[in-house]
Amino acid sequence: MTDTQNRTLHFRELGLMDYLPAFEYQEKLMKEIIELKLKNRDRTDEIYEETPNYLLFVEHPHVYTLGKSGHEENMLANSEKLKEINATFVHTNRGGDITYHGFGQMVGYPILDLDNFKSDIHLYMRNLEEVIIRVLADYGLKGERSEGETGVWLDIGKPYARKICAMGVKTSKWVTMHGFALNVNTDLRYFEYIIACGIKDKGVTSLQRELEREFSDEEMAEVKERIKKHFCAVFEASLV
């Protein structure tokens, strides 16, 4: 690591927030980091300002988001059904197809300058998966990767393979936004209205379903602490 790299993470708990305000906040942070990188690049002296990194936690009300490479036909509910189930539908600029965010789901948005870590998107995605795999191991579950399919799964290679954590990111100038969505107390019935991530032959699950118990507020807080701990370990970062 050079003396211009910064692996400090500024942690921010956003609480319950609609998708679009959270999206706009991510974009604001990303823009600020990119502007600082460009300023550093154009400097004629030897002084550089460290680019910051952020880790945001948030919970969204019912929303379906479609990535820029997604297919709208994977949204199975029409506008009347969306209104009936009190959900919204948003096109977004992350990679990946369609997914669901809702109450009881732990959403993490790392806004990182990968030049502070390693400028490798493939490695970044595998590291995000590793964070969640380690969290699941804390609860006695074996999280796995599925070749060619981003995210974390259970029982890959079996007829009842199921996704427990979806992932999708966007990068610009090696700065990331978007991230991961871990199903904890998530109402899985909402996945019935989409072909989740465009994958037809695998299901979805949650910590609640796998462990056969609902997580209390205190236990949800514990999940967040475990994510923070493993994130710092995997990314060799410190949290403030």
Rank of each mutant, 00 (worst) to 15 (best):
R126P: 00
V204Y: 10
R213S: 05
I156N: 04
E49L: 15
E49Q: 14
Y190E: 06
N40L: 05
C232Q: 15
G179H: 06
E35F: 04
N93L: 12
H62A: 15
G96Y: 03
T88A: 12
D42R: 13
G198W: 00
L36M: 14
V107M: 06
R43D: 05
K173P: 00
L154V: 00
R189H: 15
E32Q: 14
E84K: 10
K173Q: 14
E214V: 08
S146H: 12
N93S: 13
S69A: 14
M125P: 01
R189L: 11
M75W: 02
I133P: 02
N93D: 13
R94W: 08
N116A: 10
D187C: 03
K68T: 15
P52M: 02
R43E: 12
N86S: 14
M177R: 13
L55P: 02
I85H: 04
A221D: 11
K39Y: 13
N116G: 09
E50C: 06
L136S: 06
V234P: 07
K202N: 01
V63Q: 10
G108L: 08
W153I: 09
M1R: 09
G102K: 08
S206D: 03
C232Y: 06
R41L: 12
A87L: 05
K202T: 00
I121K: 03
T150S: 15
K37Q: 15
G108D: 01
W153V: 11
I47W: 09
G168Q: 03
L38D: 12
Y54K: 04
L141H: 01
R145C: 10
P61V: 00
V63H: 09
I195H: 02
G104T: 07
F23I: 00
Y190I: 02
C165P: 04
E46W: 04
I132A: 00
D45H: 10
L56N: 03
G198D: 00
V131G: 05
K170T: 03
P52H: 02
I199Y: 09
K31C: 01
